[in-house]
């Protein structure tokens, strides 16, 4: 009797590796001590944000400084949903994702007409305007924010953010391979040429911006859930925009593995420096210096550099 050979679909080793890692995390987390659970939730929040920004900035090359808007919208959707409408937290996260996508499409319709530095500055300006408008809306708690008093629910939070990250990794793979991937690479290299050869650039960009806003909104909602409160300063925090950019620049913009590596590199100093009194507050300086060095010397990030200089890994890392 012949044993039939089991053939795995050819998804590439990066996707299999990431999937294995996520499955292990998903199975092991209920048995971990509480400190490790909290650390993992915070780490996966960073991973979620990195993959979300990767959809637009990594894949099309449009640098967005305004993603903290969608984070804040998600956070306020969760806060408003729970406090004013009596939603359970999970429904609040879904509402955050929906509102994030809706606002992203609306903002994208206007801002995606700009290119390069003009896109960056319009998204920055929108963020600054949103930050100034939010404390004036008294229905959302004004400058005092919303306190939710949800209690401590680490496992529910963990599986929500875990699902978001898994969806993001899958979607990133699906978007970068096949027909969409060719269109995106064409836009990133030269948008005018891409349009000439028949890529519907504006629809593709708008779709990706919507997806990106959706995931950023969902992640922002989970972030507000972990804090159990939404404040104008924690919801609309420009340092999160910068951290997202730092993560994908360090890891490698537009790659499948890059945002994950970048999240590790940014999260470790962020979480370790908070525990050491003499180092507290220095994490932003360290990450900033690292981004400068990487942008100057290896602009393609960790993944791009490894692919360039270690040829035999090219088959396995993408």
């Amino acid at each position: 009797m012949r044993i039939p050979r089991i053939r795995f679909p050819a998804f590439g080793s990066t996707l299999y590796g990431l999937a294995l890692l996520m499955v292990v995390l998903g199975i092991a987390t209920p048995f971990l001590p509480i400190v490790a659970k909290v650390q993992l939730i915070n780490f996966l929040l960073f991973v979620g944000l990195a993959y979300a920004l990767n959809f637009i900035t990594g894949l099309t090359g449009y640098v967005s400084f305004g993603h903290a808007i969608f984070m804040g919208i998600g956070a306020y959707a969760l806060g408003g949903g729970i406090d004013r409408l009596g939603f359970p937290p999970l429904l609040g996260v879904i509402l955050g994702a929906g509102l994030g996508a809706a606002f992203a499409v609306g903002i994208g319709l206007v801002t995606l007409r700009f290119r390069g530095v003009y896109f960056a500055i319009t998204t920055l300006v929108l963020f600054l305007a949103a930050k100034n408008v939010i404390p004036e809306i008294s229905e959302l708690g004004g400058g005092g924010g919303i306190f939710m008093n949800l209690g401590f629910q680490p496992l529910a939070q963990f599986y929500t953010i875990w699902t978001i990250v898994v969806l993001e990794i899958g979607l990133t793979y699906w978007v970068t391979h096949g027909r969409l991937g060719y269109g995106l690479r064409a836009i990133k290299s030269d948008e005018d040429v891409a349009k000439t050869v028949g890529v519907n650039a504006s629809r593709l960009k708008l779709g990706l911006f919507g997806i990106s806003g959706m995931f950023t909104g969902a992640t922002g909602a989970v972030y507000a859930w972990t804090l159990s409160a939404v404040l104008p300063d924690t919801g609309f925090d420009i340092t999160y925009s910068l951290r997202m950019l730092a993560m994908i620049i360090i890891g490698g913009a537009g790659t499948l593995l890059g945002p994950f590596l970048g999240a590790i590199v940014v999260y470790v100093p962020y979480s370790y420096f908070q525990t050491v009194t003499s180092l507290r507050g220095l994490q932003l300086a360290v990450i900033g210096a690292l981004v400068l060095l990487i942008a100057l010397f290896i602009p393609t990030g960790i993944v791009g550099t490894v692919r360039r200089y270690v040829p035999f890994l090219r088959r396995y890392i993408e």
């Binding site: 801002t111 003009y118 319009t122 300006v125 929108l126 600054l128 305007a129 100034n132 408008v133």
Partner: peptide
């Protein structure tokens, strides 16, 4: 108009200006 909305409007004026005159 409250002061913080005024700041927001002043920032947002950039977008129509850029749309009409790059």
């Amino acid at each position: 108009i409250s002061a913080s909305i005024a700041v927001a409007v002043a920032f947002l004026i950039l977008i129509p200006v850029l749309l009409l005159a790059r």
